[in-house]
Simulated scan of single mutants.
Amino acid sequence: MLIGRSRMYRSDQLAAAGFRAAVLCRTFTFHSHRPAGNMEKNLQLVRNIVPPLTEKKHKGQDGKIGIVGGCTEYTGAPYFAAIASLKVGADLSHVFCTKDAAPVIKSYSPNIIVHPVLLKDPLDEYDHQGNLLQLSQALGNVTIVQKGQKDLISDGTTVLVCTQQGSGRRCGGQGDLLSGSLGVLTHWALAAGEEKTDGLNPTLVAAFGACALTRQCNYQAFQKHQRSMTTSDMIVEISTAFNKLFDSYRDE
């Protein structure tokens, strides 16, 4: 998922940025003003952006999330992403999918809003070239999450590393839970502003929080289900995992 700030680059600037990113990637050296292992401090920044629950708000102020994806063969992924966003705390969740996938996704839950659309030029999902920093810089310093043994989050200048404990179980759909969570936390982070994120790019804090939450859900679900764990089991753990990491319930 890509989230970022609009910036314009000339071709010579893009070329220079790509060269610098390639050098950084080859040496496996990531520079940040924040130590990679400072988990607790980064988790506190996420706690700072979680909005309070209050009767003064109207529906939508805590997040209207859009999920783009879904076709005949893949209907579970957008559903998991959408339902995860609601479970994390979004007010509304919309799925934009192909026309033939819409009835199937609608049948999963009445809680999500499904919009069938036409996908004329599908993306090449097998083109994995490039790297984290180069891609972020080429797109104008958007924030990108790279999943792996350690999740890397970068906006082209800073890299955060999420090492929250998960498990060895890699069931399909975990990235969808991550995407749904990320949508909500991004909305909250941008609304809170950089004052609440200690000057750090709010989208970096949001992405870090989503990665940590997904890993914690994975860990908790694995303790109960072991090898039979599925993403549905992780969805059930969102509430307790969120409270454990962010302890955020506040009423104003």
Rank of each mutant, 00 (worst) to 15 (best):
Y79T: 06
G69E: 01
H187G: 05
Y74W: 11
I3F: 14
F222N: 10
K64H: 09
A22H: 11
V95G: 02
K150A: 10
R169A: 12
N141F: 01
K64I: 14
K106I: 04
G89C: 14
R20I: 10
T98G: 07
L190Q: 13
N42S: 13
G18N: 10
A191V: 14
P52T: 11
K41H: 14
I235E: 00
K56W: 11
H33V: 12
I105S: 02
K87H: 15
G183F: 00
P122N: 04
P35W: 02
A36C: 06
A206Q: 02
Q137T: 03
G180I: 00
G70W: 00
G66F: 02
K99R: 15
A90P: 08
Q129M: 08
V46T: 04
Y74C: 07
G66C: 02
N48S: 14
I49H: 00
G168M: 07
L213V: 05
V46L: 05
G180N: 05
K196C: 13
A21E: 03
G140A: 02
K64F: 08
A77Q: 00
N131H: 15
A17M: 13
T186H: 08
S179T: 15
S85A: 15
D124K: 14
H58E: 12
K56Y: 12
L53S: 13
A206W: 01
S32R: 06
A82E: 04
T54A: 15
L133G: 04
P116L: 04
A90F: 11
N243F: 03
Y219G: 05
A81R: 03
I235W: 03
Y249F: 13
G172L: 03
L213P: 07
P116C: 05
V88H: 13
G66D: 01
R170H: 14
G4Q: 00
A102M: 06
G173M: 04
N141S: 06
S179F: 04
S109W: 08
G140K: 01
F19Y: 10
T27L: 13
Q220M: 15
Y126E: 13
M229C: 13
L139Y: 12
S6R: 08
Q174E: 11
L118V: 14
K99C: 10
A36V: 03
Y219K: 15
T75M: 05
G63E: 00
P122E: 09
D127H: 11
I105E: 03
P116I: 05
V184I: 11
A22C: 08
